[in-house]
Structure formats: structure tokens, C-alpha cells
Design a protein around this nucleic acid. Sequence first.
DNA 1: CATAGTGATGACACGACATGTCATCACTTA
DNA 2: TAAGTGATGACATGTCGTGTCATCACTATG
Lengths: 193, 193
Amino acid sequence: MSRWQPGTRERLEQAALELFAEQGFTETTVPQITARAGLTTRTFFRHFADKREVLFSGEESVPGQVARLMAAAPPSLGPMDLIAEGLAPALVELFEGRSLDYLLRRRAVIDAEPALHERELRKWALMSEALEQGFRDRGADQLTARLAAELAVTAIRTAVTRWLDRDGEPGLPEAIEETLAAMKRLTVTGSLP
Amino acid sequence: MSRWQPGTRERLEQAALELFAEQGFTETTVPQITARAGLTTRTFFRHFADKREVLFSGEESVPGQVARLMAAAPPSLGPMDLIAEGLAPALVELFEGRSLDYLLRRRAVIDAEPALHERELRKWALMSEALEQGFRDRGADQLTARLAAELAVTAIRTAVTRWLDRDGEPGLPEAIEETLAAMKRLTVTGSLP
DNA sequence: CATAGTGATGACACGACATGTCATCACTTA
DNA sequence: TAAGTGATGACATGTCGTGTCATCACTATG
């Protein structure tokens, strides 16, 4: 059809994940990735700003989606309920779009490399900023919006982690519910069990 | 006294902060830093693992200090009270050890550069892990310890940010108190004001 | 049908980052 | 006095990331 094989981005992502899993992130060079994908080094950096980004494709749209979801949710919902009712369904859709096997292998690679872990933290920080703006739009003052956003991200991230820790059983919605319940318990009583 | 000027690390840190503020992090090269400090490039990397680390010196001891403080605090304290009574004094001492001017200039540099912002996030993540272990040692289950640690870090980080936003007036203890109060308000009512 | 335009890739050069290795020199210890 | 220690200088090297221009398939336009 074209001069080049289609799906350049996808081939690079797959080749990179494989190589990172096989021999580690640091030990894998960009030329190795592009060789496996049948491309040149320069082309890799046309699709990804740096070597890490190949594992974070598509996540630049998350903040925008968060903003949309928050604008669409009923204004009466508090932070916790907003997560449970407004955000959780979209999260489930987002994460269950990828196979569990992919998510687990990706996480193993990220956990093995501090540089990738940092990039993962930035992802959540960007989501937090989007949530903060959403809460501000709902009338919260600066401090409250900031804290509500952090609480929400903590709940979501902890739930996803917990869900993956247990290899996807039970489902993500259950993990979210469980996490929110524990959070409520913790903040209401103010002391440890 | 010796063949070399004393205070190698400190000279590198000061030269780097100056240059980052003057011309930006990316635009500053390691040879420029070492030239200003009167050293060679190779020596820079003997003291700091990479170019970013020159702004995060001494922070590798924070997790250990957190562990010590938590072990020393009364076991009866819940997460929030532990921050207010057990951690806050040490925090104040830690931050007020550096001049406010230094902290503000350092923050300006970090905020201007995503790569440095990521490193800053990692710093808080390491503190969170230390807090989590501390809560586990106090008898909390995995999920509760994780959430309590995240809540604590959120409170501390938000308070420090707020304190610096207002150029150090009023003091850090007031910012902590204010943040904890807002957090309590938020989690107790469960809805935005 | 022809020709110019568009967009992705290949090819090449290059500066900065980061590390391995060995030499050098002041200071310490026996 | 001589060996040992520790920090630094000097040099080489590999990978990362970017700038630049050429190439080729596809598309639009006349």
C-alpha cells in the first residue's frame, strides 16, 4: 500500500516493551528498538520525545478527558462521590481497553526503572492538575480544590495498584469501592484501626 | 591547606543554581557549571549522579529521618495528629535551615523545568514510602498504611507550597495547621463548601 | 495526464550527557 | 622514609536527542 509498513508507532511501542522486559530499560538502546521495528533511530524520536515516552503513548489526552467528565458530572457531587460515580466508569473503560497482560508487563518494566517511575508520577500529577481545575470550576477555593484533587488521585492510583496487585480479580470497580471505603474510614475516625 | 579549594559539593551546588536561574536548566551545560566552580566535568559526576541531582543534595536522608520520627511518636496518634505533632517540628527545622530566598529561587528553577519537577515528585514519593512503612509498623494494614501515607504527604506538600506561595508569611506551622484544617473539613463533610 | 504539493521516513552530522579508566598529587600512617 | 588513601585531572567512549536536507509515495489541482 505505502512505501512503509503501517502502524509505525505501534510497532515501536511493542518492540520497546519487549526489549525493556527482556534486557532492561537502560540496557536497551534506541537503535535496538528501531532495528526490531524495521525503522531508523531518527524516526523513533519523531514519534516520541524521549526513550521513556514510548511507554506512555496516548496519556496526553487524559487531562482533557478528566476535564470533560468533571464538567458533565452533577454539580452536587462531593469529591469522593464524584470519583465513584463520575470518574470510575471512564477509568474502567480506559484500563480494560488494554489487556491485563499488557498492563502487568508494562508495570513490571516501570517498577524496575526509577526513570520510568518518575514519568509515571508525572502522569498522575497531570491528572491531579486537571482535577484541581475541575474542582475550582465547581466553586471550590484554591486550597480545597488542591486537596480534593490530591485525594481523588490518591484514591484512583491506589485502587489501580491494588487491582493489578491481585491480577485483576476482583474487578477494578470493586477495587475502587474498597479503596474509597478505606479512605472514608481513615479520615472519619482519624486514627488507625 | 590542600591541593584543592574546600567545599567542592557546595561550590558546585551554588554555581549550578545560579546558572539554572540565569539561563535555564537545559541551556546550562555541566562544563559551564564546573568552570564556574573551578573543577572539571568528571568531578561533577563524582558528586552527583546526573545534572538534576545537584538541586537535591541531602534529601536522601529524609526517608530515614521520617522513619525515626514515626518510631519516636506516641503510638496512639492517628495519621493527622501524627503530622501535626510528630512531623511538623522537624519539617519546620528542615525547611527553615535554608534561607527563604534560597528555597524560592530553587522552586522557581524546578517549576520551570519538567525534568526537575519529576525529580521533585520522586522526592515526595520516597517520603510517602517511608511513612507507609511507619504506619505498617504501627499496626495498620497494607491499604490503610498506603492511604495514610499519601494523605500525610499531600498535607505536608500542600502546606509547604502554600507557605512559599505567600513568601514565608505567616510561618510554616500556620500553613500546616491551615492545610490540615481544610483537609479535615473536606473529608468530614464529603462535599465542597 | 502532468505537475506541484504534502507528509513521513532515511541519512548524516553534531553537541550534551554520562561513565570507565588511569595518572597525579596532598595528606596520612607505619 | 615509604607505602597507602582519597579526591581530582585527563582522556576515551557510547548513548541520547536534535537539526537539516534528501527521498519517495500519495494527493490535489489544472
